[in-house]
């Protein structure tokens, strides 16, 4: 059930811990990449594939929580499993609020870690799927000319050609030609389908007056 492309990133400053967790994950055939520090991880090429991050909270240099903050600012969709030697509830609450999958106290059982990893990977593939859709939708919409995009937005509000023409101060015939181009580029004819696509691409539908 493991996606062979999934990579599990492990960041812990303790050599022994890194070594043993890597072994554990490998026993379940996961691909593991381990790092000594947050800085070392950030030095790696940006990863767009699926996987998850096992992150020690108390790292030398940039801490685990700081790395989480940084990653939230990027488009990274890697779910984070925090591990820590210090049971610190406020810290774990903060981490989980910001979207961490789990917060594991060392020493943890193999099942705890592996199920957390599984959960994280599932979430990741879901997120990946979603983000792929968005990217596709955006790619399609990005093909429109600015004029076409303008008219596309009017269409989304459910306005008729006549209304659009008068609002843009152009002829109804011109609006028709642009709509035809839009239908041709997006491959979608119905207004309903257009709305769905725009939502997928994260474009808000302008409110109709």
């Amino acid at each position: 059930m493991n996606n062979i492309n999934d990579i599990i990133f492990l960041i812990d400053d303790d050599d022994s811990v890194r070594r043993s967790i890597t072994l554990l994950l490998k026993s379940e055939k996961y691909n593991v990449e381990s790092f000594k520090s947050a800085e070392e991880f950030l030095g790696r090429d940006a990863y767009t594939g699926t996987g998850c991050l096992i992150l020690d909270v108390n790292l030398e240099g940039k801490s685990g929580l700081e790395l989480q903050e940084d990653l939230l600012k990027t488009s990274s969709h890697l779910p984070i499993i925090f591990i820590t030697g210090k049971g610190d509830i406020p810290m774990s609450v903060q981490a989980l609020k910001k979207g961490a999958i789990n917060f594991l106290l060392k020493p943890f059982n193999d099942n705890q870690l592996l199920s957390a990893v599984e959960e994280a990977l599932e979430k990741c593939s879901f997120l990946k799927e979603k983000s792929d859709e968005i990217l596709n939708a955006r790619k399609i919409i990005e093909a429109l000319t600015p004029r076409e995009y303008e008219i596309f937005q009017y269409v989304l509000t459910g306005k008729l050609n006549k209304q659009i023409a008068s609002e843009l101060n152009i002829s109804e015939q011109t609006v028709k030609i642009h709509r035809g181009k839009i239908t041709e580029k997006l491959g979608i004819k119905s207004v309903a389908e257009l709305v769905r696509l725009s939502e997928r691409a994260g474009i808000k539908t302008p409110k109709s007056e």
Binding site: D14, L23, P107, D110
Partner: peptide, 27 residues
């Protein structure tokens, strides 16, 4: 506090290693 932190690292490592071993053998 320091001691428990210091001991938790090797203990975590030992536990994970041993469980990894079991999993390898089972697999």
């Amino acid at each position: 506090a320091s001691l428990s932190h210091e001991l938790i690292q090797p203990l975590t490592a030992i536990l994970s290693s041993a469980q990894a071993g079991i999993r390898f053998i089972n697999s």
